[in-house]
Design a protein around this nucleic acid. Structure first.
Lengths: 156, 156
DNA sequence: ATCCCTGCAAAGGGTTTGCAGACGC
DNA sequence: GCGTCTGCAAACCCTTTGCAGGGAT
């Protein structure tokens, strides 16, 4: 992740905190920067461990509290891929995309289809809502599994 | 829900249990019939209370166990609308549809758009998967709230 | 008669909460 | 200095699990 992007998200967070009269604590910026140092999805426990490994002193409670702020600031997106555990990913300058989850190995693939925005516009008009964000997930079986009897992309 | 539909889903469950060598217990059919006696979404706790109120003797563990069977039999669909609690709805002869969740009052609206199937087909080809099911949710703000300062459709 | 399925209660795991101390403002 | 934010641990809630008894085959 470029320094340019990190500067941009730090600025967005600063402004968000000022506008909403929240304090600019070091933890808040540390969490944001940790998130923007990695690609892909993460969960709270993983984020906690990553920061702990770097000798960063953060509590799980602070992560839970601040992920809400980052969600509200539009810097992070939350997903529920069918498990009880929430997963997140960074949102800034990350192209709009959706997910396909392998029902066999649970690996998550991304894809992008502009037609989802057309559906969104139609739905907004039909129901008289303003859509803030969406979540489209396909749960699918790998064709290699169907054809060869085993899934070729097991997680980890 | 018509008797015709109830007969049909009971038959589907019977065949599913026979094919998969599971026992045809009275609880399984009672749960199925309870689910098909209501419209809209439900969670396990709600289903438990509904059956308990009818003096039906079922345990939560049995509900959790058997909702898995109903999911696998294609008679029920599972949703995770961003809460930690899973929500379900009946699947048989219920037209394909997706959901818009009001970010203000959390009420869930349904809509139907055939273009989602086009996206599904494209994604299947691109990633070489066979999609089993999908989930599309729009999280949106009610225009009445934006314009009038209050949401007009509070839950319950 | 076998052994899968059920009910009950306890355990599990992710998330939230309460509170004392720390620190942004 | 005031009031919010943090860290810690306990509480919470939904879900899963273990086990003994019961019912389907």
């Amino acid at each position: 992740m470029s320094q340019e992007t990190k500067d941009a998200v730090n600025k967005i967070l600063t402004e968000y905190l000022e506008v909403n009269k929240h304090r600019k604590t070091s933890e808040r910026f540390a969490i944001l920067n940790e998130i923007y140092s990695h690609d892909g999805h993460f969960d709270i426990e993983g984020l906690y461990l990553m920061m702990k490994n770097k000798k960063y002193r953060v509590s799980r409670a602070t992560l839970y509290n601040n992920i809400e702020i980052l969600l509200d600031a539009g810097l992070v997106i939350k997903h529920q891929f069918g498990k009880n555990m929430a997963q997140f990913e960074k949102a800034y300058k990350y192209r709009q995309h959706d997910h396909l989850i392998c029902t066999d190995c649970e690996k998550v693939f991304e894809f992008c289809d502009p037609r989802i925005m057309q559906i969104q516009r139609s739905t907004e008009e039909m129901l008289n809502f303003k859509v803030l964000h969406h979540s489209l997930n396909f749960f699918a079986k790998c064709r290699q599994l169907s054809e060869k009897g085993s899934c070729q992309h097991y997680k980890k």
